[in-house]
Design a binder for these strands. Structure first.
Lengths: 210, 210
DNA sequence: AAAGTAACCTACATACATGTCTGTATGTGA
DNA sequence: TCACATACAGACATGTATGTAGGTTACTTT
């Protein structure tokens, strides 16, 4: 590859990164709206202001583009939702912070991309499907650990196995937000209610928004 | 292929109905697994034991097939889940019965068809998408009515507007079951927990399965 | 039993999306 | 300034899915 001495201006690299970002975001939006198989790469490229030539210059094929989108979404989600939750010392607080953060994150339409892709690939043996299940699996084990810790400390009552509760927790986040996306501010209130219920926690008193 | 019982003379209408059912179920499975745009009608027909010729003889085109599938799923869902819930006099009981019934219903893979189709069509202006939103809307208003009644009677504490809670309720059913499908028996326990939480009800004591 | 109709299959015409390839302009290092 | 690399556009070849039209088998009616 080309050596990059520090201090030297990298105009080409900047340009490349900017184009790549634009294409990734357009692809995420396209997958969210139309699904992987239905969206034409010409549309993805056009919506970003390019042609398929640029797209194929930056990504080997449609599958690689989808994998890059998955990685990109996972990274932004971790930065905006996962990391703040990880700072919570208490496992129950971490789960609640994650749920609230997810509700906020889902106010953008790009968030539905994981759902759209998983619907299309969960049935088959496909690289994109595997990447998705790996992302979910990573999240689920992290959540299961917190749930197990909370059960052992007595912070939440006994219940189904942590791994199952974790899957239910993630599925609830996804499903609830896909039907409530944009319904500010009740999205946060309702996701918190559902999660508390899943964990076996009593309801909090309801305060109507001003 | 299609062996008919000895001595029994099959009527054309029976034959047609049987073929139609087989194609509908195969289509539902195909849409669930691959999505609308990804599944090829040749596969749908072949999986039912026919060719595309039979399919196009019974359905005008792919869109009509999808609409028929939506109608068929709605009918079976109403028969197996909606009707038993409607027999409950108490609105909260009705919502809980519906949630449990949905968990049972979702143990079959066909149930994911609504989710698959809604992912693909919720963005556009398309006949299938409209049909789906109408189904959801009918369900949501029915649920919202029960939630409002329960709030007024004091059976559940105050909370967000019934229409929003109803949407959250349906989204939770869908999302939770798509991640927990087949996880017997915790699917029922967890869906009930989530719904109780959404409605603001306190948790029930947990009894581990024998 | 013959004629007619419905169920179903096979072959084809068409459209469209992917991926590849070539061309062009602009940036970059020597 | 020259040689080369990179970013991107546009055309083409290929595969595949839809929809249609014509034919064959199975049932129905007279």
């Amino acid at each position: 590859m080309t050596a990059r001495p520090e201090g030297v201006r990298e105009k080409q690299a900047d340009r490349r990164a900017r184009t790549r970002s634009a294409l990734l975001e357009s692809a995420a939006r396209g997958f969210s709206t139309y699904g992987y198989g239905n969206v034409a790469l010409e549309r993805v490229a056009a919506e970003a202001g390019y042609t398929r030539g640029a797209l194929y210059h930056l990504f080997a094929n449609k599958e690689e583009l989808a994998l890059a989108v998955v990685k990109w979404v996972e990274e932004t989600w971790n930065a905006e939702v996962g990391a703040p939750a990880a700072e919570e010392a208490d496992p129950v607080d971490a789960l609640l912070v994650m749920a609230r953060g997810h509700a906020i994150y889902c106010r953008r339409d790009v968030a539905r991309v994981m759902r759209a892709l998983s619907v299309e690939f969960s049935g088959q043996d496909h690289a994109v499907g595997r990447a998705l299940t790996e992302v979910i699996q990573r999240l689920a084990t992290a959540c299961a650990g917190r749930i197990a810790a909370a059960q052992e400390s007595g912070a939440i009552p006994p219940g189904p196995p942590p791994q199952e509760v974790a899957l239910a927790y993630l599925g609830t986040l996804e499903g609830l937000m896909s039907s409530l996306a944009g319904h500010v501010p009740h999205d946060v209130e309702l996701i918190e209610r559902a999660v508390r219920g899943l964990l076996g926690l009593p309801p909090k008193a309801y305060r109507a928004e001003p």
